[in-house]
Amino acid sequence: MARTLVITGGTNGIGLVLARHHSERGDQVIAIGSSPSGGDRLRREAPEARFVQADLSSVKQTNELTDHLLSAHPAIDALVLAAFRYHPSRTETGEGFERTFALYVVNRWLMSRALRPALENAPAPMILDLCGVGGVKASKIHWDDLQLERGYRPFKATMQGARAAELLATAYAADPVRYVLYNPLFVATGLSEPFRQPVRGLVKLASALFAQPVSKAVRPMTALIDNPPAAPLSAYVRGKPTTLTTDPAAARRLDAAIRDLVSPFTA
């Protein structure tokens, strides 16, 4: 039976390969990307999938996107949150959000919450959130400086996003939607692009030597999409279950903090 999948970051890397796999199998795939060139790439490599262009770091555009998706697709079987971009220096969106926080944290919050009614209309709905769960233990929420206005570092921003994913999934998880946090670790997806030389060359070399091919990396993900876990919330690292350290109080705190941050743009 054909299903409906929405994939953010669906025009590049892991998202693109998932879009191709599921559209070739007959599922209805809506792949979200930020650029026309990404749409062209999707049409070449996954012509059965549908491209929707949106700047997912924008609260306004994300709200418009989710309104459109809810109208066009009353039932959504799977939401894959794969959009991510590494920012070597701190920049802000036009709405005043630090860009890593906007894409890695705020967008995931908005997409998962807004599309919940359509997910709940599906027979076995699930969210697959590609994040850094089970990774570096130093990841934490900087409660007094969520958008890292003081002492921004790209690794620090990324690790905060990884911890935020765990907390926001904890705040979200409840029947019938299955929420799966998934860390693919090192995958060959053009990781070197944001860096300048000589770091770019070193990352390219490391990718060639150690990164897992995308075609192999997505296999456990497609298996989870096909057969969501029984638990409302679960976590995996490279296909293997991992222990998730939940903190309900912190989860509620972060959920409320993001709700307050986006409220001026959602009235």
Rank of each mutant, 00 (worst) to 15 (best):
T222S: 14
V218C: 05
I76C: 01
F97I: 06
E193Q: 10
M126R: 15
D145F: 04
S234Y: 08
A230W: 03
E24L: 08
A171M: 10
Y104T: 14
A124L: 07
M111A: 04
A19M: 04
L18K: 11
V6D: 04
P248V: 06
S234A: 10
R153I: 00
A82C: 10
H22A: 05
I76V: 02
K156C: 01
R200N: 15
F265N: 14
D145R: 03
I32Q: 00
G161M: 11
P228S: 12
T66Y: 05
A102R: 00
T170D: 15
A49F: 02
H21S: 11
P74N: 12
R196N: 09
Y86G: 00
T242V: 15
H73Y: 12
L128E: 04
M126C: 15
L128Q: 02
H22E: 02
P117W: 06
I225V: 10
M1E: 02
Q28V: 04
R150Y: 00
A173S: 14
L103V: 00
R41I: 10
Q61G: 03
K140G: 04
T246N: 10
L224M: 12
S89V: 15
A102Y: 01
T8P: 00
T62W: 03
L181C: 06
F84H: 02
E92R: 05
Q28T: 13
R252V: 02
A118T: 02
R108N: 06
T91R: 10
A2P: 15
L148F: 01
A72V: 11
P88H: 07
V136K: 13
Y104E: 13
P198N: 09
T62A: 14
W109H: 11
R99V: 05
K204Q: 07
L167E: 12
S58W: 09
Q197N: 15
D67H: 13
A82Y: 07
F265Y: 15
T100S: 05
M159V: 04
